[in-house]
Design a protein around this nucleic acid. Structure first.
Lengths: 227, 227
DNA sequence: AGGGAAGTCTTACGGCCGTTCGAATTTGGC
DNA sequence: GCCAAATTCGAACGGCCGTAAGACTTCCCT
Protein backbone atom coordinates (compact mmCIF):
# COMPACT_ATOMS: atom_id res chain seq x y z
CA UNK A 1 0.00 0.00 0.00
CA UNK A 2 1.18 3.48 -0.68
CA UNK A 3 1.60 5.62 2.45
CA UNK A 4 0.27 8.74 0.83
CA UNK A 5 -1.32 11.49 2.86
CA UNK A 6 -0.66 10.01 6.24
CA UNK A 7 1.53 12.53 8.02
CA UNK A 8 1.14 10.66 11.30
CA UNK A 9 2.68 7.26 10.70
CA UNK A 10 6.09 8.36 11.89
CA UNK A 11 5.40 8.98 15.54
CA UNK A 12 8.84 9.93 16.73
CA UNK A 13 9.47 13.36 15.21
CA UNK A 14 10.75 12.83 11.66
CA UNK A 15 13.69 15.17 11.88
CA UNK A 16 16.17 15.80 9.13
CA UNK A 17 18.89 13.75 10.77
CA UNK A 18 18.09 10.15 11.40
CA UNK A 19 17.81 9.68 15.13
CA UNK A 20 20.11 7.21 16.85
CA UNK A 21 20.34 4.33 14.46
CA UNK A 22 18.78 3.56 11.13
CA UNK A 23 15.09 3.15 11.72
CA UNK A 24 12.16 3.31 9.40
CA UNK A 25 11.64 5.81 6.60
CA UNK A 26 15.32 6.33 5.87
CA UNK A 27 14.61 6.74 2.20
CA UNK A 28 11.86 9.25 2.88
CA UNK A 29 14.25 11.38 4.87
CA UNK A 30 16.94 11.17 2.23
CA UNK A 31 14.45 12.37 -0.36
CA UNK A 32 13.18 15.12 1.92
CA UNK A 33 16.63 16.53 2.63
CA UNK A 34 17.90 16.28 -0.92
CA UNK A 35 14.75 17.88 -2.32
CA UNK A 36 14.86 20.73 0.17
CA UNK A 37 18.44 21.52 -0.72
CA UNK A 38 17.94 21.35 -4.48
CA UNK A 39 14.71 23.35 -4.36
CA UNK A 40 16.41 26.01 -2.25
CA UNK A 41 19.41 26.26 -4.55
CA UNK A 42 17.81 25.98 -7.98
CA UNK A 43 14.07 26.51 -7.60
CA UNK A 44 11.17 24.11 -7.78
CA UNK A 45 10.68 24.06 -11.53
CA UNK A 46 14.37 23.67 -12.28
CA UNK A 47 14.73 20.51 -10.24
CA UNK A 48 13.35 17.25 -11.59
CA UNK A 49 12.32 14.18 -9.65
CA UNK A 50 15.27 12.45 -11.26
CA UNK A 51 17.62 15.11 -9.91
CA UNK A 52 16.24 14.61 -6.42
CA UNK A 53 16.38 10.85 -6.36
CA UNK A 54 19.85 10.86 -7.90
CA UNK A 55 21.14 13.30 -5.27
CA UNK A 56 19.51 11.26 -2.52
CA UNK A 57 20.88 8.00 -3.90
CA UNK A 58 17.48 6.38 -3.97
CA UNK A 59 15.21 4.96 -6.61
CA UNK A 60 13.30 7.19 -8.99
CA UNK A 61 9.92 5.98 -7.79
CA UNK A 62 10.63 6.93 -4.19
CA UNK A 63 9.18 10.42 -4.47
CA UNK A 64 5.81 9.23 -5.67
CA UNK A 65 5.76 6.29 -3.29
CA UNK A 66 6.55 8.23 -0.13
CA UNK A 67 5.00 11.60 -0.93
CA UNK A 68 2.43 10.94 -3.62
CA UNK A 69 3.73 13.50 -6.10
CA UNK A 70 6.40 16.11 -6.64
CA UNK A 71 3.94 18.86 -5.69
CA UNK A 72 3.04 17.06 -2.49
CA UNK A 73 6.72 16.70 -1.64
CA UNK A 74 7.22 20.43 -2.02
CA UNK A 75 4.18 21.12 0.09
CA UNK A 76 5.29 18.79 2.87
CA UNK A 77 8.71 20.41 3.08
CA UNK A 78 7.08 23.82 3.10
CA UNK A 79 4.59 22.84 5.77
CA UNK A 80 7.10 21.23 8.12
CA UNK A 81 9.60 24.07 7.92
CA UNK A 82 6.92 26.73 8.23
CA UNK A 83 5.51 25.10 11.34
CA UNK A 84 8.98 24.78 12.81
CA UNK A 85 9.88 28.40 12.12
CA UNK A 86 6.58 29.81 13.32
CA UNK A 87 6.78 27.77 16.51
CA UNK A 88 10.09 29.40 17.35
CA UNK A 89 8.67 32.79 16.60
CA UNK A 90 5.53 32.24 18.66
CA UNK A 91 7.61 31.02 21.58
CA UNK A 92 9.74 34.15 21.52
CA UNK A 93 6.69 36.35 21.21
CA UNK A 94 4.99 34.78 24.20
CA UNK A 95 8.15 35.12 26.23
CA UNK A 96 8.20 38.80 25.39
CA UNK A 97 4.53 39.13 26.29
CA UNK A 98 5.11 37.46 29.62
CA UNK A 99 8.13 39.61 30.31
CA UNK A 100 6.21 42.83 29.73
CA UNK A 101 2.86 42.12 31.34
CA UNK A 102 1.03 41.51 28.07
CA UNK A 103 2.29 44.55 26.22
CA UNK A 104 5.85 44.25 24.95
CA UNK A 105 7.53 47.14 23.13
CA UNK A 106 7.84 47.19 19.34
CA UNK A 107 11.46 46.12 19.34
CA UNK A 108 10.75 42.93 21.23
CA UNK A 109 7.87 42.03 18.97
CA UNK A 110 10.03 42.53 15.92
CA UNK A 111 12.84 40.57 17.54
CA UNK A 112 10.48 37.62 18.01
CA UNK A 113 9.59 37.84 14.33
CA UNK A 114 13.10 38.26 12.94
CA UNK A 115 15.41 36.41 15.31
CA UNK A 116 14.42 32.82 14.40
CA UNK A 117 14.87 33.18 10.63
CA UNK A 118 18.09 35.12 11.07
CA UNK A 119 19.48 32.48 13.36
CA UNK A 120 18.71 29.93 10.67
CA UNK A 121 20.74 32.05 8.31
CA UNK A 122 24.01 31.48 10.18
CA UNK A 123 26.61 29.78 7.94
CA UNK A 124 26.87 26.71 10.14
CA UNK A 125 23.21 26.45 11.09
CA UNK A 126 21.50 23.25 10.07
CA UNK A 127 18.44 25.17 8.92
CA UNK A 128 20.31 27.60 6.68
CA UNK A 129 19.15 25.85 3.55
CA UNK A 130 15.63 25.54 4.94
CA UNK A 131 15.34 29.30 5.20
CA UNK A 132 16.40 29.72 1.61
CA UNK A 133 13.82 27.12 0.69
CA UNK A 134 11.07 28.98 2.50
CA UNK A 135 11.97 32.30 0.91
CA UNK A 136 11.90 30.68 -2.51
CA UNK A 137 8.69 28.77 -1.89
CA UNK A 138 6.99 32.04 -1.00
CA UNK A 139 7.29 33.37 -4.53
CA UNK A 140 7.89 30.27 -6.64
CA UNK A 141 5.70 27.74 -4.90
CA UNK A 142 2.68 25.94 -6.23
CA UNK A 143 -0.82 27.36 -6.26
CA UNK A 144 -1.61 25.45 -3.10
CA UNK A 145 1.30 27.00 -1.22
CA UNK A 146 0.36 30.43 -2.46
CA UNK A 147 -3.20 29.88 -1.37
CA UNK A 148 -2.07 28.90 2.12
CA UNK A 149 0.19 31.92 2.37
CA UNK A 150 -2.61 34.27 1.43
CA UNK A 151 -5.34 32.60 3.42
CA UNK A 152 -3.71 31.49 6.62
CA UNK A 153 -2.61 34.66 8.35
CA UNK A 154 -3.32 33.42 11.85
CA UNK A 155 0.37 33.29 12.66
CA UNK A 156 1.02 36.76 11.34
CA UNK A 157 -1.98 38.14 13.18
CA UNK A 158 -0.35 37.36 16.50
CA UNK A 159 2.33 39.85 15.61
CA UNK A 160 0.09 42.50 14.12
CA UNK A 161 -2.11 42.34 17.22
CA UNK A 162 0.90 42.79 19.47
CA UNK A 163 2.08 45.72 17.39
CA UNK A 164 -1.35 47.32 17.46
CA UNK A 165 -1.30 47.11 21.23
CA UNK A 166 2.24 48.42 21.46
CA UNK A 167 1.44 51.43 19.30
CA UNK A 168 -2.23 52.30 19.90
CA UNK A 169 -1.50 55.83 18.74
CA UNK A 170 -0.91 54.68 15.17
CA UNK A 171 -3.73 53.98 12.71
CA UNK A 172 -4.10 50.24 12.26
CA UNK A 173 -3.42 50.43 8.54
CA UNK A 174 -0.10 52.08 9.32
CA UNK A 175 0.82 49.12 11.52
CA UNK A 176 -0.03 46.66 8.78
CA UNK A 177 1.98 48.52 6.19
CA UNK A 178 5.04 48.75 8.41
CA UNK A 179 4.81 45.06 9.20
CA UNK A 180 4.64 44.48 5.45
CA UNK A 181 7.79 46.54 4.97
CA UNK A 182 9.60 44.65 7.71
CA UNK A 183 8.72 41.32 6.15
CA UNK A 184 10.00 42.63 2.84
CA UNK A 185 13.36 43.35 4.43
CA UNK A 186 13.43 39.82 5.77
CA UNK A 187 12.42 38.06 2.58
CA UNK A 188 15.13 39.86 0.66
CA UNK A 189 17.75 37.75 2.39
CA UNK A 190 18.43 35.41 -0.49
CA UNK A 191 21.88 34.20 -1.43
CA UNK A 192 21.71 36.04 -4.73
CA UNK A 193 20.90 39.33 -3.02
CA UNK A 194 23.80 38.89 -0.62
CA UNK A 195 26.11 38.31 -3.56
CA UNK A 196 24.83 41.48 -5.18
CA UNK A 197 25.39 43.38 -1.97
CA UNK A 198 28.90 42.03 -1.66
CA UNK A 199 29.74 43.18 -5.15
CA UNK A 200 28.29 46.61 -4.51
CA UNK A 201 30.13 47.11 -1.24
CA UNK A 202 33.27 45.51 -2.66
CA UNK A 203 33.40 42.98 0.12
CA UNK A 204 32.70 45.40 2.96
CA UNK A 205 29.52 43.56 3.92
CA UNK A 206 29.26 40.00 5.14
CA UNK A 207 26.13 38.08 5.96
CA UNK A 208 28.15 35.59 7.99
CA UNK A 209 27.76 37.69 11.13
CA UNK A 210 24.06 37.12 11.57
CA UNK A 211 24.13 38.66 15.02
CA UNK A 212 25.22 41.97 13.53
CA UNK A 213 22.73 41.60 10.70
CA UNK A 214 19.91 41.02 13.16
CA UNK A 215 20.86 44.13 15.11
CA UNK A 216 20.99 46.18 11.95
CA UNK A 217 17.61 44.95 10.78
CA UNK A 218 16.05 45.49 14.18
CA UNK A 219 17.43 49.00 14.40
CA UNK A 220 16.20 49.82 10.90
CA UNK A 221 12.74 48.37 11.41
CA UNK A 222 12.28 49.81 14.88
CA UNK A 223 13.21 53.24 13.59
CA UNK A 224 10.73 52.75 10.78
CA UNK A 225 8.00 51.98 13.29
CA UNK A 226 8.90 55.09 15.26
CA UNK A 227 8.63 57.38 12.25
CA UNK B 1 17.18 35.42 -42.66
CA UNK B 2 16.48 35.38 -39.01
CA UNK B 3 16.86 38.74 -37.26
CA UNK B 4 18.43 37.29 -34.15
CA UNK B 5 20.68 39.35 -31.95
CA UNK B 6 20.27 42.62 -33.78
CA UNK B 7 18.81 45.01 -31.23
CA UNK B 8 19.36 47.96 -33.55
CA UNK B 9 17.33 47.25 -36.64
CA UNK B 10 14.26 49.00 -35.33
CA UNK B 11 15.44 52.58 -35.26
CA UNK B 12 12.27 54.29 -34.13
CA UNK B 13 11.94 53.29 -30.47
CA UNK B 14 10.09 49.99 -30.40
CA UNK B 15 7.63 50.93 -27.70
CA UNK B 16 4.89 48.73 -26.41
CA UNK B 17 2.18 50.56 -28.27
CA UNK B 18 2.48 50.65 -32.00
CA UNK B 19 3.23 54.19 -33.01
CA UNK B 20 0.81 55.94 -35.33
CA UNK B 21 -0.23 53.26 -37.75
CA UNK B 22 0.73 49.68 -38.23
CA UNK B 23 4.37 49.62 -39.19
CA UNK B 24 6.94 46.89 -39.15
CA UNK B 25 7.46 44.38 -36.37
CA UNK B 26 3.85 44.28 -35.29
CA UNK B 27 4.13 40.62 -34.48
CA UNK B 28 7.28 41.18 -32.46
CA UNK B 29 5.50 43.73 -30.33
CA UNK B 30 2.49 41.51 -29.84
CA UNK B 31 4.76 38.74 -28.63
CA UNK B 32 6.70 41.12 -26.39
CA UNK B 33 3.61 42.47 -24.66
CA UNK B 34 1.86 39.14 -24.29
CA UNK B 35 4.99 37.49 -22.92
CA UNK B 36 5.62 40.28 -20.44
CA UNK B 37 2.09 40.01 -19.08
CA UNK B 38 2.10 36.22 -18.83
CA UNK B 39 5.57 36.10 -17.28
CA UNK B 40 4.54 38.72 -14.73
CA UNK B 41 1.33 36.92 -13.81
CA UNK B 42 2.45 33.29 -13.83
CA UNK B 43 6.22 33.18 -13.84
CA UNK B 44 8.72 32.31 -16.52
CA UNK B 45 8.70 28.54 -16.13
CA UNK B 46 4.93 28.29 -15.95
CA UNK B 47 4.38 30.00 -19.29
CA UNK B 48 5.09 28.08 -22.50
CA UNK B 49 5.91 29.48 -25.89
CA UNK B 50 2.55 28.15 -26.98
CA UNK B 51 0.82 30.14 -24.25
CA UNK B 52 2.55 33.30 -25.39
CA UNK B 53 1.88 32.95 -29.08
CA UNK B 54 -1.73 31.94 -28.44
CA UNK B 55 -2.30 34.99 -26.24
CA UNK B 56 -0.64 37.22 -28.81
CA UNK B 57 -2.62 35.68 -31.66
CA UNK B 58 0.48 34.92 -33.69
CA UNK B 59 2.16 31.82 -35.01
CA UNK B 60 4.04 29.47 -32.72
CA UNK B 61 7.35 30.01 -34.47
CA UNK B 62 7.25 33.78 -33.95
CA UNK B 63 9.13 33.70 -30.67
CA UNK B 64 12.10 31.88 -32.11
CA UNK B 65 12.04 33.86 -35.32
CA UNK B 66 11.96 37.32 -33.74
CA UNK B 67 13.85 36.71 -30.51
CA UNK B 68 15.92 33.59 -31.12
CA UNK B 69 14.71 31.65 -28.12
CA UNK B 70 12.39 31.80 -25.15
CA UNK B 71 15.31 32.69 -22.88
CA UNK B 72 16.36 35.52 -25.19
CA UNK B 73 12.79 36.85 -25.18
CA UNK B 74 12.78 36.97 -21.41
CA UNK B 75 16.15 38.68 -21.41
CA UNK B 76 15.07 41.32 -23.93
CA UNK B 77 11.98 42.20 -21.91
CA UNK B 78 14.08 42.37 -18.78
CA UNK B 79 16.71 44.52 -20.41
CA UNK B 80 14.33 47.00 -21.96
CA UNK B 81 12.25 47.50 -18.82
CA UNK B 82 15.30 47.70 -16.60
CA UNK B 83 16.86 50.39 -18.76
CA UNK B 84 13.60 52.28 -18.81
CA UNK B 85 13.16 52.15 -15.05
CA UNK B 86 16.75 53.00 -14.25
CA UNK B 87 16.67 55.95 -16.62
CA UNK B 88 13.76 57.43 -14.72
CA UNK B 89 15.55 56.83 -11.44
CA UNK B 90 18.81 58.36 -12.64
CA UNK B 91 16.98 61.41 -13.95
CA UNK B 92 15.33 61.99 -10.59
CA UNK B 93 18.61 61.47 -8.78
CA UNK B 94 20.42 64.00 -10.91
CA UNK B 95 17.64 66.49 -10.43
CA UNK B 96 17.99 66.06 -6.69
CA UNK B 97 21.76 66.45 -6.95
CA UNK B 98 21.39 69.65 -8.95
CA UNK B 99 18.82 70.98 -6.52
CA UNK B 100 21.10 70.47 -3.53
CA UNK B 101 24.51 71.49 -4.87
CA UNK B 102 25.77 67.95 -5.30
CA UNK B 103 24.75 66.64 -1.90
CA UNK B 104 21.04 65.87 -1.58
CA UNK B 105 19.59 64.62 1.71
CA UNK B 106 18.79 60.96 2.26
CA UNK B 107 15.08 61.36 1.68
CA UNK B 108 15.56 62.81 -1.79
CA UNK B 109 17.97 60.05 -2.76
CA UNK B 110 15.53 57.42 -1.60
CA UNK B 111 12.70 59.21 -3.39
CA UNK B 112 14.65 59.03 -6.64
CA UNK B 113 15.08 55.30 -6.08
CA UNK B 114 11.52 54.49 -5.04
CA UNK B 115 9.29 56.95 -6.87
CA UNK B 116 9.62 55.54 -10.41
CA UNK B 117 8.75 51.93 -9.52
CA UNK B 118 5.93 53.03 -7.24
CA UNK B 119 4.48 55.20 -9.96
CA UNK B 120 4.54 52.19 -12.24
CA UNK B 121 2.55 50.37 -9.60
CA UNK B 122 -0.51 52.62 -9.97
CA UNK B 123 -3.60 50.62 -11.03
CA UNK B 124 -4.00 52.50 -14.29
CA UNK B 125 -0.33 52.87 -15.14
CA UNK B 126 0.74 51.26 -18.37
CA UNK B 127 3.88 49.89 -16.73
CA UNK B 128 2.10 48.23 -13.83
CA UNK B 129 2.58 44.79 -15.29
CA UNK B 130 6.16 45.61 -16.23
CA UNK B 131 7.02 46.24 -12.61
CA UNK B 132 5.58 42.91 -11.59
CA UNK B 133 7.62 41.35 -14.37
CA UNK B 134 10.83 42.94 -13.11
CA UNK B 135 10.22 41.86 -9.54
CA UNK B 136 9.60 38.30 -10.70
CA UNK B 137 12.56 38.25 -13.08
CA UNK B 138 14.82 39.21 -10.18
CA UNK B 139 14.26 35.93 -8.39
CA UNK B 140 12.94 33.61 -11.09
CA UNK B 141 14.94 34.74 -14.09
CA UNK B 142 17.50 32.78 -16.06
CA UNK B 143 21.13 32.40 -15.10
CA UNK B 144 22.02 35.19 -17.49
CA UNK B 145 19.65 37.63 -15.83
CA UNK B 146 20.92 36.65 -12.42
CA UNK B 147 24.47 37.16 -13.57
CA UNK B 148 23.66 40.63 -14.83
CA UNK B 149 21.90 41.54 -11.60
CA UNK B 150 24.88 40.46 -9.56
CA UNK B 151 27.57 41.84 -11.80
CA UNK B 152 26.23 45.11 -13.07
CA UNK B 153 25.83 47.29 -10.03
CA UNK B 154 26.80 50.53 -11.77
CA UNK B 155 23.26 51.82 -11.55
CA UNK B 156 22.95 50.98 -7.86
CA UNK B 157 26.33 52.50 -7.13
CA UNK B 158 25.06 55.94 -8.09
CA UNK B 159 22.65 55.71 -5.18
CA UNK B 160 25.06 54.19 -2.69
CA UNK B 161 27.58 56.91 -3.51
CA UNK B 162 24.99 59.61 -2.97
CA UNK B 163 23.98 58.04 0.33
CA UNK B 164 27.59 57.77 1.44
CA UNK B 165 28.00 61.48 0.78
CA UNK B 166 24.74 62.36 2.51
CA UNK B 167 25.68 60.43 5.62
CA UNK B 168 29.49 60.59 5.92
CA UNK B 169 29.13 59.92 9.63
CA UNK B 170 27.92 56.37 9.03
CA UNK B 171 30.29 53.47 8.29
CA UNK B 172 30.05 52.59 4.63
CA UNK B 173 28.92 49.05 5.35
CA UNK B 174 26.02 50.46 7.31
CA UNK B 175 24.95 52.44 4.24
CA UNK B 176 25.08 49.37 2.05
CA UNK B 177 23.03 47.30 4.45
CA UNK B 178 20.35 49.95 4.82
CA UNK B 179 20.16 50.31 1.06
CA UNK B 180 19.75 46.54 0.92
CA UNK B 181 16.89 46.74 3.42
CA UNK B 182 15.19 49.49 1.44
CA UNK B 183 15.37 47.48 -1.75
CA UNK B 184 13.89 44.56 0.11
CA UNK B 185 10.90 46.68 1.06
CA UNK B 186 10.48 47.64 -2.57
CA UNK B 187 10.82 44.17 -4.03
CA UNK B 188 8.19 42.85 -1.68
CA UNK B 189 5.53 44.72 -3.64
CA UNK B 190 4.15 41.73 -5.48
CA UNK B 191 0.46 41.18 -6.10
CA UNK B 192 0.49 38.08 -3.90
CA UNK B 193 1.96 40.01 -1.00
CA UNK B 194 -0.63 42.74 -1.35
CA UNK B 195 -3.35 40.12 -1.27
CA UNK B 196 -1.87 38.67 1.88
CA UNK B 197 -1.70 42.12 3.42
CA UNK B 198 -5.31 42.78 2.52
CA UNK B 199 -6.42 39.59 4.19
CA UNK B 200 -4.41 40.37 7.31
CA UNK B 201 -5.72 43.91 7.62
CA UNK B 202 -9.23 42.81 6.63
CA UNK B 203 -9.37 45.32 3.82
CA UNK B 204 -7.96 48.26 5.76
CA UNK B 205 -4.97 48.53 3.41
CA UNK B 206 -5.09 49.32 -0.27
CA UNK B 207 -2.20 49.46 -2.67
CA UNK B 208 -4.26 51.49 -5.11
CA UNK B 209 -3.17 54.75 -3.50
CA UNK B 210 0.44 54.59 -4.59
CA UNK B 211 1.04 58.16 -3.49
CA UNK B 212 0.24 57.20 0.10
CA UNK B 213 2.27 54.02 -0.24
CA UNK B 214 5.26 55.98 -1.48
CA UNK B 215 5.03 58.36 1.46
CA UNK B 216 4.79 55.48 3.89
CA UNK B 217 7.79 53.72 2.38
CA UNK B 218 9.84 56.88 2.29
CA UNK B 219 9.01 57.67 5.92
CA UNK B 220 9.89 54.15 6.99
CA UNK B 221 13.14 54.00 5.05
CA UNK B 222 14.25 57.49 5.97
CA UNK B 223 13.66 56.72 9.64
CA UNK B 224 15.65 53.53 9.16
CA UNK B 225 18.56 55.52 7.76
CA UNK B 226 18.36 57.93 10.69
CA UNK B 227 18.58 55.15 13.28
C1' DA C 1 9.15 -21.62 8.50
C1' DG C 2 5.59 -19.24 6.28
C1' DG C 3 3.04 -15.43 4.52
C1' DG C 4 1.65 -10.98 3.99
C1' DA C 5 2.74 -6.24 4.17
C1' DA C 6 6.08 -2.69 3.12
C1' DG C 7 9.51 -1.07 0.40
C1' DT C 8 12.47 -1.02 -3.74
C1' DC C 9 13.52 -1.65 -8.53
C1' DT C 10 13.13 -1.57 -13.70
C1' DT C 11 10.73 -0.02 -17.29
C1' DA C 12 7.90 2.52 -19.96
C1' DC C 13 3.82 5.36 -21.06
C1' DG C 14 1.72 9.67 -22.34
C1' DG C 15 2.38 14.44 -22.54
C1' DC C 16 4.09 18.89 -22.92
C1' DC C 17 8.01 21.40 -24.08
C1' DG C 18 11.41 24.44 -27.02
C1' DT C 19 13.00 24.42 -31.34
C1' DT C 20 13.50 23.69 -36.35
C1' DC C 21 12.42 22.96 -41.21
C1' DG C 22 10.56 23.74 -45.58
C1' DA C 23 6.78 25.49 -47.86
C1' DA C 24 3.56 29.28 -48.45
C1' DT C 25 2.67 34.00 -48.22
C1' DT C 26 3.44 38.82 -47.85
C1' DT C 27 6.21 42.83 -48.43
C1' DG C 28 9.08 46.32 -50.60
C1' DG C 29 12.08 48.19 -54.22
C1' DC C 30 12.47 48.84 -59.21
C1' DG D 1 4.18 43.41 -62.46
C1' DC D 2 8.51 41.02 -61.03
C1' DC D 3 11.78 39.30 -58.15
C1' DA D 4 14.04 38.74 -53.94
C1' DA D 5 13.93 39.33 -49.20
C1' DA D 6 11.27 39.13 -45.09
C1' DT D 7 7.80 37.06 -42.61
C1' DT D 8 4.27 33.70 -41.49
C1' DC D 9 2.60 29.19 -41.33
C1' DG D 10 1.72 24.13 -40.45
C1' DA D 11 3.92 20.26 -38.94
C1' DA D 12 6.97 17.58 -36.77
C1' DC D 13 11.27 16.09 -34.14
C1' DG D 14 13.82 14.92 -30.19
C1' DG D 15 13.95 15.34 -25.38
C1' DC D 16 12.88 15.64 -20.77
C1' DC D 17 9.32 15.35 -17.55
C1' DG D 18 5.99 13.35 -13.79
C1' DT D 19 3.83 9.32 -12.95
C1' DA D 20 2.30 4.50 -12.87
C1' DA D 21 2.51 -0.58 -13.44
C1' DG D 22 4.32 -4.73 -12.21
C1' DA D 23 7.95 -7.72 -10.74
C1' DC D 24 11.08 -8.38 -7.14
C1' DT D 25 13.16 -8.09 -2.47
C1' DT D 26 13.18 -7.25 2.41
C1' DC D 27 11.15 -7.22 6.78
C1' DC D 28 8.21 -8.55 10.51
C1' DC D 29 4.93 -11.18 12.98
C1' DT D 30 3.01 -15.51 14.35
Amino acid sequence: MSPKSDGATVTTAPETEVEGVDNEAVTKNLVFVAAERLFALHGFQNVSVRDITAAAGVNLASVNYHFGSKDALLYEIFRRRTVELNRERAKKLHEAIDRHAGNPPVREILAALLTPPLKWLAPDHERRISLQFLIRARSEGTDEIRKVLQTDVTHLRRFSDALLKARPDLPSEEIYWRLHFTLGMLHNNRFAEFDRLNVLSEGATSEADVEALLNRMLAFAEAGFSA
